[in-house]
Computed example of a mutant assay.
Amino acid sequence: MNALKKTVLLIEDNQDIRESTAEILTLADFTVFTAENGKKGIELAQANLPDIILCDIMMPEMDGYSVLYLLHKNENTTDIPFIFLTAKAERADMRKGMEMGADDYLTKPFNDMELLTAIESRLQKRERAIHQANNTVSFTGLLDEARSAKLLNDISGNSRLRSYKKKQNIYMGGDQPLNVYLVKSGKIRSYMLYQDGREIISGIFNTGDFLGYESVLLNTPYPENAEAMEATELFLIPKDEFNTLLFKDRSIAKKFIQLLSGNVQEKQEQLLKLAYDSVRKRVADALINLAEKFEGAAVETCEIKISRDDLAAMVGTANETISRTLTDFKDEKMILKEGSTIKILSVEKLRRIKQ
């Protein structure tokens, strides 16, 4: 068997649906396990740890809700993406499933593309979450590594904690870098200015994020401005102390190189989106990124606070265009909006928006 093949567990009591769906998945190069009831499905999930689970709701012996509940209680299966298969008459019950932690649902009858698109979307989302988790550098993690290298005292003794008010500048583009900044609490935005005064946001940072290290690593002025979006506390690590830490501990240096490489890739993707994506797609992606940044990669519904001006600066468009697009999203029941608070009703619906 190809080691790269993804595995799917299909739990479905209807034999015709089970066999036809399994055939589609096998033709799409998935390895498929099937179960005719919830009890057997749990046994197969625990024995095989599939990459994704498709599960009917109404089944004998154990319904889909019970399957989801028990799998989420088991640490070995709790993170496996879970998609409900539901008849149209059961759609009113899907809110219960999503609140319990289901990732998505498919309404029967579904076609081949709907099935495969839903699976690929969830698998890609899980891979992104794993990648982000592997590359995330938290302050606690750095301190643990510094402790092992006997550098904890150097960091704690030479870093300073400073408070910033909303809209207060952290640094300006063109300033020489003096510190690396770590967000203890609050939110920071980095942005660039056009010649006509318009802004474009290049990054948003919250608790546990570092900023300003690119300029310290490259020994160049800050290329952008940084400003507090709300009351914020930052650890300031002096440039010389930061460089000493990197030279003394190779594992910490490696992590910052990974962060720097990731930032370059994100900037490239941002430029491509500005060049080729529609405004509607860019607004949807911006809301998804904010949701995942502040609430976590697995979130489906959440509330985020961002001004119309900041959202326009993230997307690279006019405020009026942002207002019209958000109104459209509200009419399509993807979001609710009250002041600067946007309640996302379905991250997945936003993700499905095309050009």
Rank of each mutant, 00 (worst) to 15 (best):
M1T: 12
N2E: 15
N14E: 13
D16E: 12
S20T: 13
S20H: 09
S20C: 08
L25K: 15
L27Y: 13
V32Y: 05
T34V: 14
T34Y: 07
A35I: 06
N37H: 07
K39L: 15
K40V: 14
L44D: 08
Q46K: 12
A47G: 06
N48I: 10
P50G: 09
P50C: 03
D51V: 04
C55V: 02
C55K: 02
I57P: 03
M62A: 07
D63W: 07
D63R: 08
G64K: 03
G64L: 02
S66H: 09
L71F: 03
I80Y: 07
F82W: 10
F82V: 10
F82C: 01
I83D: 04
F84V: 00
K88D: 00
A89H: 06
E90F: 00
D93E: 13
M98Y: 10
E99V: 14
D104Y: 13
Y105C: 05
P109I: 13
F110K: 01
M113F: 14
E114Q: 15
A118K: 09
I119C: 10
K125Q: 11
K125P: 11
A133T: 04
N134F: 04
V137E: 07
T140Y: 15
T140A: 11
G141P: 12
G141M: 14
D144A: 14
I155L: 13
I155F: 04
S156Y: 06
N158K: 11
R162Q: 12
Y164K: 00
I170S: 06
Y171Q: 01
Y171L: 05
V180M: 03
S185L: 08
S185F: 03
K187D: 04
R189N: 06
Y191F: 09
M192K: 15
Q195E: 08
D196E: 10
I204M: 11
F210I: 15
F210P: 10
L217C: 06
L218S: 15
L218G: 15
N219P: 10
P221A: 02
P221L: 01
E224W: 13
A228Y: 13
T232A: 12
F235N: 14
K239N: 09
D240V: 12
D240S: 04
T244A: 15
L245S: 04
K248H: 03
K248C: 05
I257H: 08
Q258L: 01
S261G: 14
S261P: 05
N263I: 08
Q268G: 02
Q268N: 14
Q268E: 13
E269R: 12
D277T: 00
K281V: 13
K281Y: 12
R282P: 03
A286P: 04
K293S: 02
A298I: 04
V299Y: 00
S307N: 01
D309L: 10
V315C: 01
T317A: 01
T317D: 06
T321P: 00
S323T: 10
K330R: 09
K337D: 08
I342W: 01
S346N: 01
K349T: 05
K349G: 02
L350V: 01
R352Y: 07
